[in-house]
């Protein structure tokens, strides 16, 4: 009797262990989702993540925001900045990678070396001088400091990603294109860029997520409530209510994370593979 039992149970054990771990791990997210439908009293009183009395009014109350600025404004600002950053990185990293990986010119090794060297530059060292320069230009409290650099291929992670991917594409493509009379620009646009789709997708998804979650630089550069993004707006909401409106606050936390959860569901395989092949941090 015993061997039969063990044969039935043993393969299930790792699954049970994994599922138990996942329940603990994802509990805070579930709790946030549940709490966004609870009254503030119930959040404090109950351990269960499932709301006893559904309070969808949290969303309306939270969405109204604080001091006359609604979350619609924050959501719009976050979206504009994130989409701008995505377009910037896709454009600048692909053309830069193409030039560094495929074109013949003097100083190519040096230029590529510098580009890769900038991978090692921590952003803290640039924070203050960049702020002062943007301050001089009168760009503080605009989106420019957050979006414009993305069009200048200074996000070394993504440049590196595109460079590596471009190097993996067969050289024969360029040679065939050259024989057919294609110049460098047409070769890039018609031959290589279509093949860059996986690298472009990884660049786009991760640029979006990182910009969406970014708090530090948005906190520094955006000063007026009409300019705030979701992370900054959520922080201000927390300060303004000093934790007394937990229900609406969790509702807005949920709204902030909703686009990421949607991206996760749509692209989970791509996200995980992007991490595995490039060695990104999350």
């Amino acid at each position: 009797m015993r061997p039969l039992l063990t044969r039935a149970v043993r393969p299930a054990l790792p699954h049970l262990l994994i599922i138990a771990l996942l329940l603990v791990l994802l509990y805070p997210v579930a709790w946030m989702l549940g709490s966004s439908f609870k009254s503030t009293d119930e959040i404090v009183a109950s351990l269960s993540f499932w709301p006893r009395h559904f309070t969808p009014g949290n969303f309306a109350q939270g969405w109204a925001g604080t001091a006359g600025t609604s979350f619609a404004v924050y959501f719009m600002n976050s979206t504009l900045i994130a989409v701008g950053a995505v377009i910037g990185n896709m454009f600048s990293c692909s053309i830069t990678a193409y030039a560094m990986a495929r074109l013949e010119f003097r100083g190519r090794a040096l230029v590529t070396g510098i580009a890769i060297g900038t991978l090692l530059l921590p952003k803290e060292i640039l924070l203050i001088p960049q702020y002062l320069i943007f301050h001089q230009l009168g760009w503080v409290d605009t989106d420019l400091p957050l979006v414009l650099p993305k069009f200048l291929a200074v996000d070394a992670f993504f440049l590196f990603l595109n460079l590596q991917f471009m190097r993996g594409l067969p050289r024969e493509l360029d040679e065939a294109a050259a024989l057919d009379g294609c110049g460098p620009f047409r070769t890039f646009w018609h031959i290589l860029l279509p093949l860059m789709k996986p690298a472009m997708a990884t660049t786009a998804i991760f640029t979006f997520i990182w910009t969406w979650n970014d708090y530090f630089s948005q906190l520094i550069y955006l000063n007026s409530p009409a300019r705030y993004t979701l992370p900054v707006g959520l922080r201000m909401f927390l300060d303004a209510t000093s934790g007394s409106d937990l229900g609406p606050m969790f509702a807005m936390a949920t709204v902030t994370l909703a686009p990421l959860l949607v991206l996760f569901v749509l692209f989970q395989r791509h996200l995980v593979q992007g991490i595995a092949t490039t060695g990104f941090k999350g």
Binding site: L25, V29, M252, L257
Partner: peptide, 18 residues
């Protein structure tokens, strides 16, 4: 993918508050 999910959300202000 599910074990990876916290890495995706974890640096956000929302999760810090949660």
């Amino acid at each position: 993918a599910l074990f990876y999910l916290p890495s995706l959300l974890g640096t956000s202000v929302a999760i810090a508050i949660v």
